[in-house]
Nucleic acid binder design. Structure first.
Lengths: 121, 121
DNA sequence: TTACAATAAGCAGATAGATGCGTCTAAATA
DNA sequence: TATTTAGACGCATCTATCTGCTTATTGTAA
């Protein structure tokens, strides 16, 4: 539903929020499948019904620079008989954005304006 | 259904067969999901209806030493937007076993007898 | 020959993540 | 305020692999 520039969507805020809570508990990395389950039970599925929605939200947050990700190696996943996970971490930018949202401010300074970088002539 | 010692089951032969055909065409590695589809269409699903069956057959063949496997790194899989694959190769033992089956012989010499290695006293 | 035991096959579902497509909403514009 | 439209959401499905439980079949022993 058309993003208001500099703002985050409820699901995106929930993801960052869960990530920050986890980080304060010492777990600074999380993966999509796990956070989906956390959010589902925490919000009583109000914010998330389908996995596809979450994975795309994670992708958006990474593009925005609020999350960064790395792939778990097969060496970690294979012996446990499960697929490799993509592990996300809240970046400093993400942490700051979350702090602003919690203060009721706009999440992001508008670093790039939509018409920037193209037509200064 | 209780294996006759030294023999392979139809599905196991089909896997080794497909692997050997692929190897002769220059593809010496294959993964479960792909070979499932090959076998499904080749045998008109007579030998395989469920993935679980195939993956367990692959596991048995690896334990028997007819196949060996390695895990594809996330570096290969991730950019293509798919999970990492487990890549299997027919071993020399596997190739020889297949040759014997094709000649109508027993697939494996009975290297280990069930009551061996324990009570020679 | 029959009964038993071993075990492969099938079914269902978990784990983990991605994409295509139609819909619907909210933000921007007129 | 009314209209347009970007784009997020949900659904379905695909890519891959693995495991638990039940059922069916087969080889072997009695």
């Amino acid at each position: 539903m058309r993003r208001k520039p500099g703002h985050l969507l409820p699901l995106e805020i929930a993801i960052c929020d869960a990530a920050s809570v986890l980080a304060q508990r010492g777990t600074d990395e999380f993966h999509g499948y796990a956070i989906a389950k956390v959010i589902k039970q925490a919000s009583a599925a109000r914010l998330l019904t389908a996995y596809g929605t979450l994975y795309r939200a994670l992708g958006r947050l990474e593009v925005m620079g609020l999350l960064e990700s790395r792939w778990e190696g097969a060496a970690e996943a294979a012996p446990r008989g499960r697929p490799a996970r993509r592990l996300y971490r809240l970046t400093t930018t993400g942490d700051q954005a979350l702090a602003r949202v919690r203060r009721g401010e706009r999440a992001l300074e508008l670093a790039e304006r939509p018409d920037d970088g193209l037509a200064p002539a």
